[in-house]
């Protein structure tokens, strides 16, 4: 893409903390770092939440809020995967259709049989790894631009689902497969804690550590910032990019499993999720074109997008106009990011 003007000083490879710092200090430092990256989107989220609460005070009731979290969970996970591909300088447009594949395949194979849970989970995760590998290998080794690769993958997966199911998927999901997106722990005080919320937190925590605290993450950010430079400093850019695509695909599978908990089995279940995930990453302030991004801000971006949809719903805006508003919002986010980069010497 054309956007190549990135300031040189934009923390591509975050500095490691001094080893002398105590664990607590380091934790505080990390938290501060994430907070700084997330501040703008967090502010937007708070404003939207405030508006929702004003319109519907019941939103603060734990069951209502947790139901909202449960619905937002798939997008949050998907965005946490997408950000890896975007900071590496690419896009993954195949995730929506991979969600569909996950739901449809799981339903067709288990046919409601609870004993099939483990094998089916293994199978869909394997499909995810495979799809991610193909995306990554085609993009890096065959040098096909990722938007074309993953667009082709989207066509392939979508076509395969329709071909296989004849357009109307059959089968059913066992309740123990649906539990991840649907069920909750009973807890005192807050009442219920959805499994989905725990899965989001776990995924976000792992993704944050991977991107910001491991050599892989630093190499990925460096690759996105400047592939040639990263390669010259000894980064195996092919490998880190392939891993990024695999992570994105895995996030799509997990999102699909959660979505299966409350959405019906259909050939359209994942449609539109790819662009919503990219929107969430943009809202989280990651640089399209690579080199900069934060998992925490991205996950908050996804939550903001879902909160926005809820707000528009409360405002009684007709369903179609929601998309117009989503369009305006993501344009606003990229223009804001672009102009901010320009000011800081892009």
């Amino acid at each position: 893409m054309s956007d190549t003007t990135k300031p040189a000083d934009e923390g591509r490879v975050p500095q490691r903390q001094q080893p002398a710092a105590s664990r607590l200090d380091r934790f505080g430092g990390h938290a501060l770092e994430h907070l700084k990256a997330s501040a703008p989107i967090l502010a937007v989220l708070i404003v939207i939440f405030a508006a929702i609460i004003y319109l519907n005070p019941a939103f603060l009731d734990p069951p209502v809020f947790l139901a909202f979290l449960r619905r937002a969970a798939p997008l949050m996970i998907l965005a946490a995967g997408q950000v890896f591909v975007i900071v590496s300088g690419g896009f993954d447009l195949s995730v929506g259709s991979l969600i569909t594949v996950t739901v449809v395949v799981a339903a067709a194979i288990t046919e409601g049989d609870p004993d099939a849970l483990i094998p089916v989970m293994m199978l869909v995760l394997l499909i995810g790894v495979l799809v991610g590998m193909v995306n990554g290998v085609v993009t890096t080794m065959l040098k096909v631009p990722s938007i074309i690769t993953t667009l082709g993958m989207l066509l392939i997966l979508r076509g395969a689902v329709f071909y296989w199911t004849g357009g109307s998927p059959t089968g059913a999901l066992a309740d123990n497969f649906r539990q991840f997106g649907r069920e909750a722990f009973d807890l005192p005080v807050i009442g219920q804690l959805p499994y989905a919320a725990i899965i989001v937190i776990a995924v976000a925590w792992i993704a944050t550590r991977l991107l910001h605290r491991t050599a892989f993450g630093h190499q990925l950010l460096a690759t996105g910032g400047g592939a040639r430079a990263a390669q010259l400093t000894g980064v195996n850019i092919t490998r880190v990019r392939i891993i990024a695509f695999v992570l994105s695909a895995l996030s799509a599978v997990i999102a699909g499993i959660l979505l299966a908990g409350f959405a019906g089995v259909s050939a359209q279940v994942g449609q539109g999720y790819e662009f919503r995930a990219i929107s969430a990453v943009v809202l989280g302030g990651a640089a399209i074109g690579g080199g900069r991004g934060s998992v925490v801000a991205t996950v908050i971006g996804a939550l903001t997008l879902e909160a926005l949809f809820m707000l528009l719903n409360l405002l009684g805006l007709p369903q179609p106009l929601r998309e117009s508003v989503q369009g305006v919002i993501i344009i606003g986010a990229v223009v804001y990011a672009g102009l901010r980069l320009q000011r800081s010497g892009g």
Binding site: D3, F91, L341
Partner: peptide, 11 residues
Amino acid sequence: GRANPLIATLG
């Protein structure tokens, strides 16, 4: 607007 073309035109 310095917006990434993919995102801007998607919008």
